[in-house]
Design a protein around this nucleic acid. Structure first.
Lengths: 216, 216
DNA sequence: TCAGAAAATGACCGGTAGTCATAAAAATGG
DNA sequence: CCATTTTTATGACTACCGGTCATTTTCTGA
């Protein structure tokens, strides 16, 4: 078994290395402009080797998405372990998400790629798709957990199903952060040009509204 | 001038016809899978002709996006003209948006394409990009108008800047509807599998939360 | 040491967005 | 009405890229 497991470890570290290279190339040039030849060169392997480990260019991007999702989930789980009320946790998660997106825009784009591809049924079944969904589900679980805590400690109203509230909170946060992110990007929507307030104000406003909407 | 304007009208109707064809092909097969040759064939013109009217495949998709945005804006403006309180208008706009997305998923995908491309700086300056932004700005204006009405008739609290609130409402709605839409699509996120409530429940919940969050 | 298995490789293929030399059509004007 | 210029249309062609596969290289275990 020892030999097999070393082989397995080799395979995984090789794949991690390929994902490293892809992450660099794709964050630099964008997914469409990045070519498999470039990724192979950066990873110092032949192009064919990429296809030994990943079924397609998209699959590599999904692997990047999984990586980012795991990092984000780690941060989310840390919020849950802090000594906060449920409502404070929810607020903290909102900020954590925003901060992560701001600091890791390339992971954000990878998340979007996954969700987009999923909602357009472009993805075939594969272990990577499953993993992406698993990661998404985990993130969702943290939000639901925080909501349940808030319902128990009396900081959040318990007239909603926590899962339902989780989906709403998740979707709304994603949307607001997306808008916020667009405002950050160099070439952003003109719609947002004459909006003078800062990102922080925007998110604070959102969290305030949601907060007072779900507060007991 | 009459002659020039006839020429102009001819050009525009030709372009509309191309967009008709593209809309058919793209809604049927998706943007990536649709080919310029197919679109040309459907429009009964040579492929080169497409490029006389549009700079790229993406440009055609932007034209589709503009078309959808105008239809949606028309519906939004109708909400504003109804005899409702500001808060009711906001709620009604949320439902209108959801309904539009459900009934016109291909326009929804076109909107996403535009926003995605924009946030990744893939779009070069062009009149079409400007037009897309114009349309987006108009939609935003309707929401802000409704919020202002609500602040005046006392149904919405006036502690926020209406524009700021508009951006938040816009972003959050987009996010929730996106999640809702994913639940509708055949191959949706596993995250949503064990969520038993319906779309309507979800949106109602969201509007309720936002409503009680911004209610005076 | 060597045969057979496993992994790696890059030349090659199919397909598509976009171009451009050429042709058709339309406008001009005498 | 025809000749000439300008505008518009066309599809064969090019460049490029994701993905394949016959061949080569490396590994393994007896």
């Amino acid at each position: 078994m020892e030999k097999l497991s070393r082989k397995e470890r080799d395979r995984i570290s090789r794949e991690e290395y390929i994902v490293d290279a892809a992450e660099e190339v794709i964050s630099e040039k964008g997914f469409d402009a990045a070519t498999m030849d470039e990724i192979a060169e950066k990873a110092e392997v032949g192009k064919g080797t990429l296809y030994l480990h990943f079924n397609s260019k998209s699959a590599i991007y999904l692997a990047i998405s999984v990586r980012g999702g795991k990092i984000l989930n780690q941060k989310m789980s840390q919020v849950l372990s802090r000594d906060l009320s449920g409502l404070e946790m929810i607020e903290e998660m909102g900020y954590t998400y925003l901060q992560f997106i701001q600091q890791n825009p390339h992971y954000y784009r990878a998340f979007n790629f996954f969700e987009n591809a999923l909602s357009e049924n472009k993805l075939t079944e594969s272990s990577l798709v499953d993993e992406c969904e698993q990661v998404g589900m985990e993130a969702m679980t943290y939000a639901v957990r925080a909501l349940q805590i808030g319902m128990q400690d009396g900081t959040i109203k318990d007239t909603f199903d926590p899962k339902e509230l989780g989906v709403i909170f998740w979707g709304a946060s994603r949307g607001v952060v997306q808008v916020a992110y667009m405002k950050e990007s160099r070439r952003h929507m003109k719609v947002l040009d004459d909006v003078t307030f800062s990102l922080e104000t925007l998110i604070k406003g959102f969290i305030e509204i949601i907060g007072s909407g779900i507060k007991k």
